[in-house]
Design a protein around this nucleic acid. Structure first.
Lengths: 235, 235
DNA sequence: CGGGTCATTTCTGCATGCAAAATCTCCCCC
DNA sequence: GGGGGAGATTTTGCATGCAGAAATGACCCG
């Protein structure tokens, strides 16, 4: 009886848990692994994506790999050319401007909402990451922590729809670090901006937080574009 | 000589045109057609997507159809349950709130940017659609024109990154019209809001345009949630 | 008569096979 | 020597096949 009851209860729980447990279906694993490859800058922008090679590397057939490519194309990381294969989405300076401009709109709203809705846990996490950022100014770690910081801030809005789009944009921005050299000066300046952001956040000063987040984003975008301009002077 | 020159020039042009010409690769056609099926409300929310049936209907094998499902899942229109098939993404009232809240952030920015950057062609197109909206208050046409109107406004920002995300959100909202009954009163009110939006737009009053677009979005969202609340009173 | 277990059937996910398109290679011709 | 083209090779896109998981139903037990 009790055993049956326990079992049934567990079954019900399992159904739900099972649905959420990322019972990763191979092609979804591939999406993650391929995205990681792209974010690690292993392939140059515009480079052809070696389908056969990746099949060997991931030990899968072409079907799940191609499914993964479709998903990554929808997310904007790869570009599919009919009958001509997939390439790593090339970096177009014009699009970078648009990317940052759009992200600025979201950053602004993140400031407004996070100031209103951040939980104690959100604040604790932000303080943690912020402290780590202070003690890890070296590029590889700093970049990762920076991602975590802004992700945590976006999560504090308690809006999953916003969070998902924001994370996607952040990842697209993250790719750029391989085409532009990170300027140590910009890193220092960036941290100062984070300080100001934390001050506004702690005070739950929503308008200021929004303004500082958007300004931080704009400055980062301008730094990226400046770093890119001399590299591609064109005609 | 001249024939060769002409031929080569045409080849080069063709290469570019070919890359952009939607040389639709079956699975991409399926994405469009399936999306249309979902937006037409042919399948209920949470309903299982009949893979075999759709294969017959579209006269394709399962491979391209499943690729299309992956893309639509990435866009948020379907939900993939490992080993259990795909279902039409169910409507969660909480997510609807988040959807409109996030869209509000974008609407606001659309107002700011469109007021600054709209071209003469953009304005002409908006006036056209607005005039049609006035003369077509009947639901099916009005809804389609309403989509066009907001799309045109988003396009006037000249920011393709923003536009793409906005269009996706709009389509996700569009699906809701089958779960909530369109209220004629709301349609009339909506048109009044469009009038106010056009006034601000013509004057290039960016702050007002932003505010009115966001308010319009918020009111629509509230109307949807209100229409949904009695339908699902829960426990 | 309700609930549970096991067998059957259906369906999902991935691997493989095949035709068409694109790319490459080499040669020819100007 | 360079541009162009025909054939060979590779690659792409889709269809099909197959193993395993889930859904269905029959049967049995309490």
């Amino acid at each position: 009886m009790s055993a049956n009851g326990a079992k049934r209860a567990r079954d019900t729980v399992e159904e739900i848990a099972e649905a959420q447990r990322e019972q990763t279906t191979l092609h979804e694993q591939i999406v993650e692994r391929l995205r990681a490859v792209l974010l690690d800058g292993e392939l140059a922008y515009g480079a052809k994506i070696p389908e056969a090679e990746l099949c060997l590397r991931f030990s899968v057939s072409r079907t799940p790999l191609r499914e993964a490519l479709k998903v990554l194309a929808a997310e904007g990381f790869v570009e599919l050319r009919p009958n001509r294969g997939a390439i790593v989405a090339p970096v177009d300076p014009a699009d970078i401007g648009h990317l940052f401009e759009f992200k600025g709109a979201i950053e602004h709203r993140i400031g407004l909402l996070a100031a209103l809705r951040a939980t104690a846990a959100d604040q604790t996490r932000l303080e943690e990451i912020h402290a780590l950022l202070r003690s890890h100014p070296e590029p590889p770690t700093y970049t990762a922590l920076n991602q975590d910081f802004h992700h945590a801030l976006a999560a504090a809005t308690q809006n999953p729809v916003l969070l998902q789009t924001y994370d996607n944009l952040q990842k697209r921005v993250l790719r750029l670090r391989f085409v532009v050299n990170v300027n140590p000066l910009r890193v220092a300046q960036s941290f100062d901006e984070h300080e100001a952001i934390m001050v506004a956040f702690r005070a739950r000063a929503r308008l200021d937080l929004a303004e500082r987040l958007e300004a931080h984003n704009r400055l980062t975008g301008e730094a990226v574009l400046r770093a890119l301009a001399p590299a591609a002077p064109e005609a």
